[in-house]
Amino acid sequence: MSTEILVSFVIPHKGRFDMLKQTLESIALLDYPLNQLEIIVVSQTPEIANETLLSNPEIKLTVLTQISSESISASRNIGVKKAKGNYLAFLDADIALSANWLTQMHAHLKKDNRIIVSAMQVCAENAPPLEKIRTHLSNADIDCNLNFLPGRNLFMTRASFEKIGGFPEHLITCEDYYFTDQAAKLGNLYYTSDASYIHIGEDKFYDEMFKKEIWRGQSNLQSIKGRKIPLREIPSFIIPLGILVCLILSLISILFQAYNNALVFIILGMLPVVAYSLRLYALAKSSVSFSSVLTFYTYYFPARAIGTIAGLFKAIGANHK
């Protein structure tokens, strides 16, 4: 007699097999009846094989192939169509869950009109400064309801997913902002410290982070459409662009030997960098140096601005086709 599937894990994937395997193995180590779980990997890497991914045969594993041009949202939505569970767990393909993750997600989802719950991020052993910075940013507010939850680990009912209408397939990035914003109209988004995860693929080097932030920023403006933007989110759109403009104006001033003007623009551009760095340094409680935090924002803001501008030109080009 077959056991009913209660929870379906939906994982979009592209490359990085070792991280995907670690993700799946962390699911296999959950303190939960494994025969009530299924894993659906929607991969943009066609040569992937089921038998190489998961050593525990107790969990049903399905691998679907997705074309590389489709968005992460499309992969998640396809996975849900295949899923049989009454509950859906959305993970990125580089997440290692704590053993109590699923039991805690079930417990917390039942409380206080919650529609999505998520666990807090923790660092891996010997984490470099950049990973610690990213983790502190993820945990700025914890054990409370939030306006947004990152898409790395989300737990919800299938019924709630259907009410929301699925992930926004028109967005290349920022799809979790849009999806959880729509979910917040139906209930609370809760971020708990009672369970945790390690982001195996977390940024560890500043040059790699710079490239990723350009990519992540390309759907910034598109993600605004169709949702109400809270006041506290507006600076995240304005400040990166303002810093980039100040940097460009300072370089132009230097070219024209207007050094006083260049100094003014440099100071104006650095003010928000320093302000954000002081805030994060206080949040990190000295677990990372101030110079590391300052370096992070010096890379982060220009990269976000470049990505936003690139996304704007892509959107304009797409509209003229």
Score class of each variant (00 low, 15 high):
residue 1 M to A: 04
residue 3 T to C: 11
residue 4 E to F: 04
residue 5 I to M: 07
residue 5 I to Q: 10
residue 9 F to R: 05
residue 9 F to W: 05
residue 11 I to K: 05
residue 16 R to V: 13
residue 20 L to R: 00
residue 21 K to I: 14
residue 25 E to V: 14
residue 26 S to L: 10
residue 28 A to N: 11
residue 32 Y to T: 01
residue 37 L to I: 08
residue 39 I to Y: 06
residue 41 V to L: 00
residue 41 V to R: 00
residue 42 V to W: 02
residue 42 V to E: 03
residue 44 Q to I: 03
residue 45 T to Y: 05
residue 52 T to Y: 00
residue 54 L to E: 08
residue 58 E to T: 13
residue 58 E to F: 03
residue 60 K to Y: 03
residue 65 T to K: 14
residue 66 Q to Y: 03
residue 76 R to F: 09
residue 77 N to R: 03
residue 78 I to F: 08
residue 79 G to C: 13
residue 80 V to Q: 08
residue 83 A to E: 12
residue 86 N to P: 00
residue 97 L to S: 15
residue 98 S to V: 05
residue 105 M to D: 10
residue 106 H to Y: 12
residue 108 H to N: 15
residue 110 K to T: 10
residue 110 K to C: 06
residue 116 I to A: 07
residue 122 V to C: 07
residue 126 N to L: 01
residue 128 P to Q: 06
residue 132 K to S: 05
residue 140 A to Q: 10
residue 140 A to V: 13
residue 143 D to S: 04
residue 144 C to A: 07
residue 144 C to K: 13
residue 144 C to L: 09
residue 148 F to R: 13
residue 150 P to H: 09
residue 151 G to T: 02
residue 152 R to V: 15
residue 154 L to C: 09
residue 157 T to A: 11
residue 160 S to M: 11
residue 160 S to P: 06
residue 161 F to P: 01
residue 164 I to S: 12
residue 174 C to A: 09
residue 180 T to E: 04
residue 180 T to F: 05
residue 181 D to G: 08
residue 184 A to R: 15
residue 184 A to F: 12
residue 186 L to A: 05
residue 187 G to L: 00
residue 187 G to M: 01
residue 188 N to G: 13
residue 188 N to E: 09
residue 195 A to W: 11
residue 197 Y to A: 14
residue 201 G to P: 03
residue 203 D to V: 02
residue 204 K to S: 13
residue 207 D to S: 11
residue 214 I to D: 05
residue 215 W to R: 11
residue 217 G to I: 04
residue 221 L to C: 04
residue 223 S to Q: 10
residue 223 S to M: 09
residue 225 K to L: 14
residue 227 R to I: 14
residue 228 K to S: 10
residue 228 K to M: 01
residue 233 E to F: 11
residue 235 P to T: 11
residue 243 I to E: 04
residue 247 L to R: 10
residue 249 L to I: 02
residue 250 S to W: 02
residue 264 V to A: 08
residue 270 M to V: 01
residue 275 A to G: 08
residue 280 L to T: 15
residue 289 S to V: 02
residue 291 S to M: 08
residue 295 T to C: 10
residue 296 F to G: 03
residue 299 Y to I: 08
residue 303 A to H: 08
residue 306 I to E: 01
residue 307 G to S: 04
residue 312 L to R: 10
residue 313 F to H: 01
residue 314 K to T: 06
residue 315 A to S: 14
residue 316 I to T: 05
residue 319 N to Y: 00
residue 320 H to E: 08
residue 321 K to N: 07
